[in-house]
Design a protein around this nucleic acid. Structure first.
Lengths: 376, 376
DNA sequence: TCCGCCTACGCGAGCGTTCGCTCATCGTCA
DNA sequence: TGACGATGAGCGAACGCTCGCGTAGGCGGA
């Protein structure tokens, strides 16, 4: 089926061990004429080394395992995209396994161990609180994770979530908002707690309070964001700004506000988190804290390769985040502007006649940070 | 480092070959007491079989290679997500390699061959016209592709693009549109030609013409969609409907229309293609032809496993597509309604006073096919 | 008592590599 | 002329596993 080293050696008239050495680029192991003969034979026969056999004796499969929750999640797939590129640059292939709710999380790790991967990259937030997984981690195995993995020696790589929350909070208070609410992810996640902490700090610095009833938990989905924002507005119609923990949820929030005829950013400002590629194209374009997914994935892979190579690496590393100002944030409505409808009612219907379209409506041209590559 | 069969056998007091047979579930190869002793030893020692060694002798790595363009593309990552799940169900792991523009496309295939994958799944539209890749395909190797791979024996799996185009076209003409334009992907792609063909057929059935200047080519990106739609409207302001070959591009189109103050769907209708998870949350929610990415990926993986298992499979298989009606399409504006602005001008500013907001504006509640799981 | 059969296990070979060691040849220099 | 270091190539072992076959020992039947 496949041509082996022996086939190549036979054609070149040498022993297969010699062929091995030549094809591996060892110097001074054969006369240049012999070496060339071997290389020619390999080329003619289309020899492709069997990495299974090589891995067996070298005790390294030149592969890295990636454990992932769900590739359909744009954030996670961006991570993997970056990681994959960096791994390829390092000559490693990626073995992908997903951790599925119905199966034991430790089994996905066992699968990778069975493949004798050189290291593992964890891109699975659902594993954050998974004791069984943490317990199954072999400490000898180099491990880099994009989420917390308490109790393991895994290197943590990500962005500074506290700064993320702080940037969003500062932006909103600087614009003059005081009635600020937030739609978070599940508080079991460390990222959620950290973002909330930074957000609270920023608000506190401006003497703005964040009572519990202005914090709504959602599940990272657009549907969840929609519902959470609806609950928030039902409870407190005076809210003028929302910080949403992911762009996907923010999309749901924007949609919900549109359904209720709440103008963004005139009546309510929205700050997202992630900066998905699509976020600058939403109407209004979404102000958001940019998380460098691809870069983080690439860096994670690079660090993992360092660990595999025996080089010393820091136990955690955070990549910078950045606030991207776009069209979904503005100052809060003035008292006069808000008077007619007394804030959006739960039913969402403005009571009076439609007001004239504002000068900077939700269809405003994108902020300069956005569309620079779109022809005007 | 790792515990081997010999370790297990030594602990159980048997030869490692016997341990191998027992652990592989062979019947009648050992007394039940011995078998239990071996299993206990394996459990105690945490034995994980070395798939490299097993693959070497069994001549099967129990892995499947996936060649992908870019995981950051939501459509492609959805494919892989579905495929990955199906592969896992079949006991196979996925080895991921990406084909990068700067490197030889055949080398990614060689990489997989080196890993002795049992089959290859191609999720790389960029390889469609790649002669070098097609030439490098070993015909013995089971191959399933989501895009055309002319000249190879690869099984083609996808959706019926012609139907896709037809559905979009029929929907628009049924709503009464006559001035219909389209933003396509690169015409080098078979999918683009097929969609265009179906679209043309649907229009022709209603005696609607599609002259070349109403067809604009873009590059699958939102930026590209934005620019293409701008060119289209500049050339022909009378356009009342647009069929866009991907939801991502459609997002750019919606954004561009919003920037020009063209109301969707009141002034212009937009039909997308893909039905990305986010599409129902856009404002207005996007009418689109749903492509079952995840299911296609899953089916592709299942077919690949069939081929690997030596079962007979059809040379191509198409999954059904479906038109999802949402808020971005409606009938064309009446002559009266369009009179004030004489169609959107390139500058995009309605000349008269803003008309009263229509009863079904672009912020209308989503169509029933959408938000059924969003609480009201 | 001997033969043959079944059960339960061991043995040897081989999968395709890598790697260290041995060995033959040859030119060089004392 | 003989010892010696390069140079060039082969050889054996090992990596961890699977699989077919060989073979003890125990049993019943003739």
């Amino acid at each position: 089926m496949y041509v082996s080293l022996k086939d190549v050696a036979a054609r070149a008239g040498v022993s297969f061990q010699t062929a091995s050495k030549v094809l591996n680029g060892h110097e001074g192991v054969a006369a240049s004429s012999t070496a060339e003969r071997i290389r020619a034979a390999a080329r003619d026969l289309g020899y492709v080394p069997n990495l299974l056999a090589r891995g067996l004796v070298r005790r390294s499969s030149i592969t890295v395992g990636i454990i992932i929750d769900d590739l359909a999640d744009p954030a996670l797939s961006s991570f993997v995209s970056g990681a994959q590129a960096a791994l390829a640059a390092g000559g490693h292939a990626a073995v992908l396994v997903s951790v599925r709710p119905e199966s034991d999380s430790a089994s996905s790790l066992h699968k990778l161990v069975a493949h004798r991967v050189d290291g593992v990259l964890v891109v699975a937030p659902s594993l954050e609180a998974d004791r069984r997984f943490s317990a199954a981690v072999r400490d000898e195995m180099p491990l880099v994770s994009l989420n917390h993995l308490p109790g393991t020696s895994a290197v943590l790589l990500g962005s500074c979530h506290r700064t993320t929350g702080r940037l969003a909070g500062e932006h909103l208070v600087q614009m003059g908002h005081r009635a600020i609410a937030t739609v978070t992810g599940p508080p079991t996640r460390e990222v959620v707690r950290a973002r909330l902490k930074g957000f609270r700090e920023a608000l506190a610095d401006a003497a703005v309070d964040l009572p519990d009833d202005l914090v709504e938990v959602a599940d990272w989905t657009a549907d969840g964001g929609y519902a959470a924002a609806a609950r928030l507005l039902d409870r407190n119609p005076a809210i003028t700004a929302l910080f949403v923990h992911s762009d996907l949820m923010a999309t749901g929030v924007l949609r919900m506000l549109a359904d209720r005829r709440v103008s963004v950013p005139r009546q309510t400002s929205v700050v997202g988190c992630d900066d998905l590629p699509i976020s600058r194209f939403l109407v209004p374009s979404l102000t958001t804290v940019s998380i460098p997914f691809v870069e983080t994935g690439a860096r994670a892979a690079a660090v993992l390769l360092d660990r595999i190579g025996g080089r010393e690496v820091a136990p955690r590393e955070l990549l910078p985040v950045e606030l991207i100002r776009r069209g979904s944030t503005a100052g809060p409505p003035t008292a006069r502007a808000r008077a007619p409808s007394e804030g959006p009612t739960p039913a969402g219907r403005p009571s009076g006649a439609p007001t004239r379209r504002p000068r900077t409506p939700n269809t405003a041209p994108p902020a300069s940070s956005g569309f620079k590559d779109v022809p005007s």
